[in-house]
Amino acid sequence: MGTYKLILNGKTLKGETTTEAVDAATAEKVFKQYANDNGVDGEWTYDDATKTFTVTE
């Protein structure tokens, strides 16, 4: 398990959240659902060194 971070750079929603997941693929699924639930759809990037996903609208 590891802690993964999501940085939201949406047009109307900005912020950060974290999740505990077994791997990056699992964290990505959780974060994409979170972003979708909050109406954020954009370009995704992932930094393996910091376990950080970023979505920018």
Rank of each mutant, 00 (worst) to 15 (best):
1 M>P: 12
1 M>E: 10
1 M>Q: 09
2 G>N: 15
2 G>M: 15
2 G>R: 15
2 G>S: 15
3 T>M: 12
3 T>G: 05
3 T>W: 13
3 T>Y: 10
3 T>S: 07
4 Y>I: 01
4 Y>L: 01
4 Y>M: 01
4 Y>S: 00
4 Y>C: 01
5 K>Y: 15
5 K>Q: 05
5 K>W: 12
5 K>D: 02
6 L>I: 03
6 L>R: 00
6 L>E: 00
6 L>M: 05
6 L>C: 08
6 L>Q: 00
6 L>N: 01
7 I>R: 05
7 I>G: 02
7 I>N: 04
7 I>E: 04
7 I>T: 04
7 I>V: 13
8 L>D: 01
8 L>M: 13
9 N>A: 08
10 G>E: 03
10 G>C: 12
10 G>M: 12
11 K>I: 14
11 K>N: 13
11 K>V: 12
11 K>G: 07
11 K>P: 10
11 K>R: 13
11 K>F: 11
11 K>L: 12
12 T>G: 09
12 T>E: 09
12 T>K: 12
12 T>R: 08
13 L>S: 07
13 L>I: 15
14 K>E: 05
14 K>N: 08
14 K>I: 08
14 K>V: 10
15 G>N: 10
15 G>I: 15
15 G>C: 12
16 E>Y: 14
16 E>I: 13
16 E>W: 15
16 E>Q: 11
16 E>M: 12
17 T>N: 05
17 T>S: 08
17 T>L: 15
17 T>Q: 11
17 T>G: 04
18 T>E: 09
19 T>L: 09
19 T>F: 13
19 T>E: 04
20 E>H: 11
20 E>D: 14
20 E>Q: 14
20 E>M: 13
20 E>G: 05
20 E>K: 10
21 A>K: 03
21 A>D: 03
21 A>I: 02
22 V>L: 11
22 V>F: 13
22 V>G: 12
22 V>W: 13
23 D>Q: 03
23 D>C: 05
23 D>W: 03
24 A>G: 04
24 A>H: 09
25 A>H: 10
26 T>S: 14
26 T>H: 13
26 T>Q: 13
26 T>G: 10
27 A>Y: 00
27 A>K: 00
27 A>S: 02
27 A>W: 00
28 E>V: 06
28 E>W: 14
28 E>S: 07
28 E>A: 12
28 E>L: 15
28 E>I: 09
28 E>F: 15
29 K>W: 10
29 K>C: 08
29 K>Q: 10
30 V>C: 06
30 V>I: 15
30 V>R: 10
30 V>Q: 10
30 V>L: 13
30 V>P: 01
31 F>D: 00
31 F>Q: 00
31 F>T: 00
31 F>C: 02
32 K>P: 00
32 K>A: 05
32 K>T: 05
32 K>R: 14
32 K>E: 04
33 Q>V: 09
33 Q>S: 07
34 Y>M: 05
34 Y>T: 03
34 Y>K: 03
34 Y>R: 03
34 Y>Q: 03
34 Y>I: 07
35 A>K: 01
35 A>R: 01
35 A>T: 05
36 N>Q: 15
36 N>G: 06
36 N>R: 15
36 N>S: 14
36 N>M: 15
36 N>H: 15
37 D>I: 11
37 D>V: 10
37 D>H: 08
37 D>Q: 13
38 N>D: 03
38 N>W: 14
38 N>V: 15
38 N>Q: 13
39 G>H: 08
39 G>C: 07
39 G>E: 06
39 G>P: 02
40 V>C: 05
41 D>N: 11
41 D>G: 09
41 D>S: 13
42 G>R: 01
42 G>I: 02
42 G>E: 01
42 G>A: 03
42 G>H: 02
42 G>Q: 02
43 E>A: 11
43 E>D: 14
44 W>Y: 02
44 W>S: 01
44 W>A: 01
44 W>Q: 01
44 W>I: 03
45 T>D: 09
45 T>W: 09
45 T>V: 09
46 Y>K: 01
46 Y>L: 02
46 Y>H: 02
47 D>V: 05
47 D>Q: 05
47 D>Y: 05
48 D>V: 12
48 D>E: 14
48 D>C: 07
49 A>E: 11
49 A>N: 13
49 A>H: 11
50 T>L: 08
50 T>S: 10
50 T>K: 06
50 T>W: 04
50 T>F: 05
51 K>F: 12
51 K>C: 06
51 K>N: 07
51 K>L: 09
52 T>R: 03
52 T>C: 06
53 F>S: 00
53 F>E: 00
53 F>K: 00
54 T>V: 08
54 T>S: 07
54 T>D: 03
54 T>W: 08
55 V>Q: 01
55 V>N: 02
56 T>V: 07
56 T>R: 06
56 T>L: 07
56 T>A: 06
56 T>Y: 08
57 E>P: 07
57 E>V: 06
